[in-house]
Nucleic acid binder design. Structure first.
Lengths: 184, 184
DNA sequence: GCGCCCATGTAACTAGTTACATGATTCA
DNA sequence: TGAATCATGTAACTAGTTACATGGGCGC
């Protein structure tokens, strides 16, 4: 157990909900966890293969006429164990890389209007995101498939994180725009 | 101009404040920008060499008895130009990877107490950080060397980001702890 | 006819981390 | 006496991105 290959655990997490192909995993993660976690095909396919070797998942290939074959992966008992073991471990934080703050920090000679442009873009980005989070919240608390799922309270918790975080960023943007205004 | 090698721009940014050795850059960034940007020696030294080749910095080696040689790098006109060009570009966002949220999302079968432990740790982490930010704010607005610097208002802005963000996380932690309490 | 969707994958690359090596000096 | 600081660097590795290749089906 390495604990460092996070892609592995993300895939195990998705497969713990339902058996899926690599393609399905990508689509599912794009609509469910992409606001806080991202995976792409170039990682998904090789890692699925590795996991099969390790006995964490099993593969069944299905054929449909006129469609490419699908490799459906199911999580095994061993996979569930490894996932749960990882879930219980404390969070490992990675060094932050906030490009916006890095740029701001070194920008005393950049025209204030350019900085304000960036802050406005940031604000708009989060305004849209918050709307998106609200839409998702309504969707998953309404949809029959999701609203009775055991995971729902925790899913709402991750959405709430997005909301709190977004509101904080917008607040900061407003304060920063005021500060920049005085620097004109 | 690649725009993708962010380490390069971080180093140019630091060197735009003052000529420094790789070692100095590391120490400086650890105390000034490490809360939102991190660099380590294994990147700093090779990137400084590349930048010298590109004519973005120049190197002077100084000797002091009983000390290792120091390679002092100074930013050139070309380096300043490239830095400023980059600073004006819009922010490039990287795909998020929030391990805490990823774990939460897939944790319906993890004991609630374990989840609360994680949230409490997160809350404590940010409480400490906010204290640290306050300390830094007092320091840089008091210290003679920093308080009259042109960059000060922007530095305070990055600190304020940390404060807003930290407060939001703590708020979310409190709400989440309440939710988890009802799931016991 | 064009472009998107389905579906799997590889190659080549860039970014970033960890561990190691050296060796004198200073401080507890 | 042992740990930390000064100072530079390399090797080996892991993580992650971008671009490419394949080829039928389907909607506009």
């Amino acid at each position: 157990m390495s604990l460092t290959n996070k892609t592995k655990y993300a895939l195990l997490g998705v497969l713990s909900l339902s058996p899926m192909s690599g393609y399905d995993i990508k689509k599912f993660s794009d609509i469910s966890i992409s606001h806080f976690w991202n995976e792409n095909y170039a990682r998904i396919y090789p890692v699925l293969k590795e996991m099969e070797k390790e006995g964490l998942v099993t593969k069944i290939t299905t054929r449909t006429a006129g469609r490419p074959d699908r490799n459906i992966y199911s999580i095994t008992g061993k996979g569930l164990e490894e996932l749960n073991e990882w879930l219980r471990q404390p969070i490992q934080y990675r060094p932050p890389r906030e490009e916006l703050l890095l740029k701001l920090f070194f920008s005393p000679n950049v025209p204030v209007e350019n900085l304000m442009e960036k802050i406005r873009a940031e604000k708009e980005k989060y305004q849209k995101l918050i709307k998106e989070f609200k839409r998702i919240e309504i969707m998953i608390t309404t949809d029959k498939k999701t609203k009775s799922q055991k995971g729902l309270p925790l899913w709402l918790t991750t959405l709430n994180f997005g909301k709190c975080h977004g509101e904080a960023v917008i607040k900061w943007c407003n304060q920063t725009l005021k500060t920049l205004e005085t620097m004109k």
